[in-house]
Every structure is written in C-alpha cells, then in structure tokens.
C-alpha cells in the first residue's frame, strides 16, 4: 500500500487572527503553526493502514522552507519520506495542481488529505486533485478500510452518513472520527531528522483567484445577563429585541 498524505501548515486553532501590510498578509507574529487538524486525522489513519497492510507513507506539503518543522512532525508521527513543493500556496487550484503533478507518476494507491484546511476552509483541493488525475474523490470521509483493491468508507452527509465502496486508487478528504490524532514519540522524533525530505520546484499554470484584502469581523457587543429566576425575560428579549423567535 503506497499512501500519499497531503498536509497543510496552518496556525494553531487558538491563534489570534490579525493581518499586516495593509490587510494583505497574515500576521504570523506569535503564531504557532501545526499540521492541519483534518490532515492530521488523514495521517493518523494512514499510519494505522500501513501498520495493518504494510507499505509506505509519503507526506506532501506545498509551502516555503518555513513549513519544514511541520513536515518533520508528520515524519515523526510515522510518514517515511516527504516532498515539499517549494511555493507559496496561492489558492486551492494552485495547490491541487502541484499535488497532482507530484502524485502523477508516484504510483500511489491512496491519496489522503483533510476535508479542508483550517486557514482558508476551501474544502476543494481533494476534488480538484481527483479530477486532475482522473480518479474518484470522496469527502468528507469519516471511516476508511481497505479490503484488497477496494476501499470502504463512510462519508458524512447533512443529518447522517453514506457508505461507499470504490476501487483503488482514489482521493479522500478526511475528517474525524477516522482515527485518533497521534502524538509523536521520542523514537519517531529522532528518526524523523534523517528521513528524506525532497524539495521540488512548482510547475503548472498558477492560480485562478487573486487575493485583494483581508478583513476582520466587527467586534461583538456586550453580553446582556439575565437572572436565572427570570427566564421569562429571556423569552421576551428574544421575541421583542432580537426578533428571532
């Protein structure tokens, strides 16, 4: 089983979001970067599938040199080698094209990634990669098992789930509870230092969208506290002030 896991390098979920350069750049000051939580689920499931079926795991990230600590963490969790496409991830299509080009001749049975990144939340890269490679793409995948050349999975839909089967190879956008996040152990961290991390230059046609400007939502007003003995007041506020019931 040859598995490719595509990971994003994103601000930790507790980060304060701010912008610089006239609201055209994300302010990385004091921000800690992590493997995207959904990608981390994909990686965790890949490690389990490798334990079960043998094979290898390659992680791929499209990003500048600053993402290497995040890639090393994925190697420490259990990937065997890594590819970094040396480019700023400009938009979903740009990233998808880089992944498709890197995966094209790799002979992967399975291409996993998160259902969406937590910075841009696009949720589009897996579908684009599938289309570019002419492979089925399924997302958001909540369970994934491999039997011979067939993948069996559950996909979340509004109000429930759908069970699917597809022949390998295919592309999956993953989410919980596909596996539990894995924490790298000491041995993993040590061995990650010497695992191969290949840097390749980007190729392709570039992006389909252009960022103009970021903005922050307006600040929230103060909370109105209501006495626990007087829930009737809440009802009348919701009715007459908020007008939502």
């Amino acid at each position: 089983m040859k598995i490719l896991v595509c990971i994003t390098h994103v601000p930790d979920t507790t980060s304060r979001i701010a912008f610089t350069d006239g609201d055209t750049k994300f302010d990385t000051n004091g921000v800690q970067f992590i493997i995207g939580p959904y990608d981390d689920y994909a990686l965790a499931r890949a490690v389990e599938l490798k334990e079960q079926l043998g094979g290898s795991i390659t992680v791929l990230n499209v990003g500048g040199a600053e993402t290497e600590p995040t890639i090393r963490k994925a190697l420490a969790i259990g990937a065997d080698d890594a590819i970094r496409v040396n480019a700023e991830p400009k938009d979903s299509f740009f990233v998808a094209e880089q992944i498709a080009n890197a995966a094209k001749d790799g002979g992967y049975d399975l291409i996993l990634m998160g259902r969406e990144s937590i910075d841009f939340n696009g949720g589009m890269v897996h579908g684009m990669v599938g289309e570019l490679l002419g492979l089925p793409s399924i997302s958001p995948v909540m369970t994934l098992d491999i039997e011979g050349d067939t993948a069996k999975m559950a996909r979340e839909i509004e109000g429930g789930k759908e069970y699917l089967e597809v022949k390998l190879p295919f592309v999956a956008g993953c989410q919980e509870p596909i596996a539990e996040w894995k924490i790298p152990n000491m041995r993993g961290i040590m061995s990650a230092r010497t695992k191969p991390l290949n840097v390749v230059e980007p190729s392709g046609n570039g992006e389909n969208t252009k960022l103009e400007k970021y903005e922050l939502p307006p600040a929230k007003g103060d909370v109105k506290m209501i006495d626990a003995e007087n829930v009737g007041e809440l009802v009348s506020l919701l009715k007459n002030e908020a007008k939502v019931i």
Partner: peptide, 24 residues
C-alpha cells in the same frame, strides 16, 4: 450552496470547465 455534496462536486466541475472557484 456549500454542502457535503456541493463542495466536492464544485471542485471537480471547476477543473473540468477551467473556472475560478471560491467557497464560503
């Protein structure tokens, strides 16, 4: 509409027709 079906479908359509795609 953004949805569990709309998102993966629109991603594939965007590649087929060469469109710019923005979600959310």
């Amino acid at each position: 509409a953004n949805s569990s079906l709309g998102n993966p479908v629109s991603a594939r359509v965007s590649v087929k027709v060469g469109a710019s795609l923005v979600s959310n």
